[in-house]
């Protein structure tokens, strides 16, 4: 039972919360609005809020300059691919840690997490050279492989915390019912952990989508994702404010929409299952 707050405090809190939320949202709102303005209006000395003249020409110009659809396609393959691959490796590992723990399980988990602590720059040069020699530079599969390795510890950790909530009795029941390991995982564990796996999937797709170190340093044109796409707009600064906004909006829109729609599962995922 929530305590009954007086209507005045409620109005006060609501106004304050909305004011702060809109302030935080302002940069995104600005981008959305500016994307539909003309260049001249975007840099006018007295700024407008809504576009005076609603235009879509910025989006066309962006597509002409650097192929948005190609980069978006790369981003999708890269983020979904790396996450799925991570799940394939991560589910069995998390199963082992959650249901057949040993004294060292916790140390292994912490070690895995600690590989995330390794700064990317620390290994950029060897990875760059290895990729050059294996002809993986500027390839989508090479990039996907790297991303899988980067997110694997998080995937395993998240899955581990979700799996631990599943009573081991049920898996033992499956074993008694004649299920071998493959059936136990595919028909019992995974369906029961669907919400957790969905959160893991969502969060890691977002992290991969927004990954902006390897995608920029290891690609040039062919395998560029949307982070590389948007970086190409950073040099001639200021000149293309409306087009820059249009490109930005295009780069963030897919993940923003996905995030909004899956907000509930995502919040659970964001806490890495560690906060209930």
């Amino acid at each position: 039972m929530a305590r009954a707050a007086s209507i005045q405090t409620r109005i006060g809190f609501t106004a304050l919360a909305w004011a702060i939320a809109l302030l935080l949202f302002a940069p995104i709102l600005w981008t959305i609005l500016t994307a539909f303005k003309t260049e001249a209006e975007a840099i006018a000395t007295s700024p407008t809020f809504l576009p005076r003249e609603f235009t879509l020409e910025n989006f066309g110009a962006v597509q002409d300059r650097s192929d948005y659809f190609k980069h978006a396609f790369n981003s999708i393959i890269f983020s979904v691919g790396s996450t799925l691959l991570g799940l394939v490796i991560g589910v069995p590992a998390a199963w082992a840690m959650a249901f057949a723990p040993t004294k060292r399980t916790k140390d292994v988990l912490m070690w895995m997490l600690s590989t995330k602590m390794m700064p990317a720059v620390g290994v950029l040069i060897p990875i760059y050279l290895i990729f050059r020699d294996l002809r993986l530079l500027d390839t989508l599969h090479g990039l996907t492989l790297i991303m899988t390795l980067i997110n694997l510890p998080i995937i395993i950790w998240m899955l581990y915390t979700y799996f631990k909530e599943i009573p081991v009795d049920i898996l033992e029941a499956a074993r008694m019912d004649g299920a071998e390991l493959y059936n136990e995982i595919v028909h019992v564990l995974v369906p029961m952990a669907v919400p957790g796996i969905a959160s893991t999937l969502l969060l890691n797709v977002i992290l991969a989508w927004n990954e902006a170190f390897w995608t920029i340093t290891l690609t040039s044109g062919k395998a560029g994702t949307l982070t590389a796409f948007i970086s190409s707009f950073s040099s001639p600064q200021g000149l293309f404010l409306a087009k820059l906004s249009a490109a930005s909006l295009l780069a963030i829109a897919p993940i923003l929409l996905m995030g909004w729609f899956s907000q509930k599962q995502l919040v659970r995922g964001l806490t890495f299952g560690a906060v209930k």
Binding site: D169, D177, E180, P191, M192
Partner: peptide, 21 residues
């Protein structure tokens, strides 16, 4: 032998039903 091969059936205290089925 692993449990799956023993041909025994077990009823658990928690029932251990598969919640998704």
């Amino acid at each position: 032998a692993p449990p799956a091969r023993r041909g025994l059936a077990m009823v658990f205290q928690s029932y251990a039903l598969y919640p998704h089925m």
